[in-house]
Structures are given as structure tokens and as C-alpha cells.
Design a protein around this nucleic acid. Sequence first.
DNA 1: CTCTTAATGTCAGCATACTGACATAAATGA
DNA 2: TCATTTATGTCAGTATGCTGACATTAAGAG
Lengths: 164, 164
Amino acid sequence: MSQEQSGRAPKGTGVEGKEVEDLESLLGYQLKHLQTTLRSRMDATLRPLDLTTPQYNCLEQLRRSPGASNSELARGAFVTRQTMNTLVRGLQERGLITRPAKADSGRILPTRLTPAGERLLDQAVSRVEAISARMVSPLDDETRTKVTEALGLCIAALEESEDG
Amino acid sequence: MSQEQSGRAPKGTGVEGKEVEDLESLLGYQLKHLQTTLRSRMDATLRPLDLTTPQYNCLEQLRRSPGASNSELARGAFVTRQTMNTLVRGLQERGLITRPAKADSGRILPTRLTPAGERLLDQAVSRVEAISARMVSPLDDETRTKVTEALGLCIAALEESEDG
DNA sequence: CTCTTAATGTCAGCATACTGACATAAATGA
DNA sequence: TCATTTATGTCAGTATGCTGACATTAAGAG
């Protein structure tokens, strides 16, 4: 609380430093709040399609990278390959994606959207984009760009130390 | 792919609209990336203390709101009370927090940190603050404030429609 | 060619987080 | 007062997401 962190003094304007508290960790707090709210809204809008947000993300990424491996999908969705594996299986059982039972060359089992998967994804995309648009609606283009860049800097700062 | 979604033209600056694609959803993407990375770093730094990020959040909130109910903690951590319940039980079994078996007045069971919980939390806080500081280290004070405010606007935009 | 290293897919176990449902207690309105 | 609404704690079930571990295959080093 009272251990000076790095010499900067955002509370040096006057008398007490009580309400100010943690301007730093406030970013983490807002981050979590927004992420949770966004996830909640996406889940709600996808529920009529019987899709969850991670499932949507998987399908969406598969459209942009047809034939991607499970590990590739995992990296793109920021989850482990184990997590993505269970996700992929569920989508496969529902006939939304296809995956060969055996690999021709290595171990990689290239995954692809089925026509049913594409159709469902089309519906999902328009729903999700409406939410995404609403989220950023209070920000003008410049702010939006700035914020995105700032978040990118934060990511880099966290990742540069002790591998990625 | 080629079905115009809503008529807006963020790609209307020139010739092709391929790379630009989704400036909107990029914010969501960065959001998820940063959140995941932060969570990963926090988990890693808390592991020696045998604490997870949600557990840390619970303890931390309990220090600021001693005697909080389970539902209060849930709201503060942006999870359901069911989720918080399991979290609280685990911490209780480890003797880090206390909770009466029966309520004196209503149904609320006020929760508090034990001395052991306080000690552990002290260690955790310094570790987590180091990570939080590293995350925001690339941002100057003005940018940090702007970003936090911008995220707040996004939260409000998502929450204002169809209850909160 | 052989050993090592990295990458992939998968099994098991556990923690987190949600929805749905139920009983109980407080607050509110009629 | 009595009924309705709201808030809380909890049970059950399921989905997500992690670590640890293992076998298999690819790629490189020697």
C-alpha cells in the first residue's frame, strides 16, 4: 500500500492517497470486467444457435484457416491444445466440422468446416458482430486504434520476460 | 464472405479491404489475448503460494470488504455466486478464511480473512503487483487513464441494453 | 544413421464457471 | 395481514481451461 512502487507519483497532487489507490490494477480490473461482460453477451446471443463463445471462436478461426491443426487452433484461441481438443470433438460430433481419423503424413489431423458448419457460422457471425459493434460504439476511430495499440503494448510487456 | 453486413465501410479508403478486415473485433481479440496472458502470468507467480488467480481475487476483495457475503464476493469478482461458493469453500478448508456455519439474522454468512489468510495475501499482493506494474509499464499516465476510461465506456455500452 | 529436440495428439485429473433448479429469508405492495 | 418479489445459499449437471504425463512423428545435430 505505502511502498513506493517506482517513484512515479500520481497521487502527489495533494494530501491523501486513499481513493486513488491502484490506478495500475484498475486497468486489470476493467479488463476483467469488460471481458466478462463481452463473453456473457456473446454467450447469450449465441445460445439460440446452440453455440458457445469458444465454439464460435473455433469455427470462425477455421473459416480463415481451413485445414488447421488442433494445435494451431489452440494457439489462435489462446487456449491449450487439450482444451481445444475437447472443443473440436464436440463440434465434430455435431457435424459442424470434419477431421480425418488418421493423418496421411505426420500426426496432424487437418480440420475443416462442413457445409452445416458454414451455415451456422454465418448466422453466428452477424449476431456476434452486432455485439462487437455495440461494444466499440462509444469510441471514435482514433481512440479505438489507440486503445488497441495500448493493449498490444501491454501484451508485449507481459510476454517479453520468461519466454512467451 | 461477400455478403455486405451492415453497410458500414471502414474499408472505404481505397482499393482493397482484406488486411483491415475487423478493426472492431480486433479490440475483442486483443482483449482476450491480454486477459489470457495476464491470467497466465498471475497463476505462475501465485503457484509457489499454492494460490490461483480467482482465489487471490477473493482474498484481496475480502481484505477490502471484511464480512462480505458470498453473493457480494461473486459480484465483485464478476462470477456467479455458485462459482464463488466453491471458491470460498476451498479457501475455508485451508483455513485462510472463516465463515459461520449458520447465519444470525438472514441467510448471509459473513466471510472474513484469518490471520493465516492475511499473511498469505500479503505475499501474494506484492507478487501480483509486480506483474500488474509490468503490464502497464509501456503506458504513460495519460494513456493509462485514457485506456481505462475507454474500457469503461465499452462496458457501459454493453451493459446498458437488456438489463445488466 | 543415431541421438536429441521439438511438435502433435491424447489420456487423466482437477479447478473454474456457467445454467437450471430449489428452499429459505427479507423486503415490498396490495 | 398476505401475496409477490427479490436476494441468498446451495445442489446438480455440464462446459471450459489448466497441469502433468505419455506415445508418436518430424526435424536437426552429431
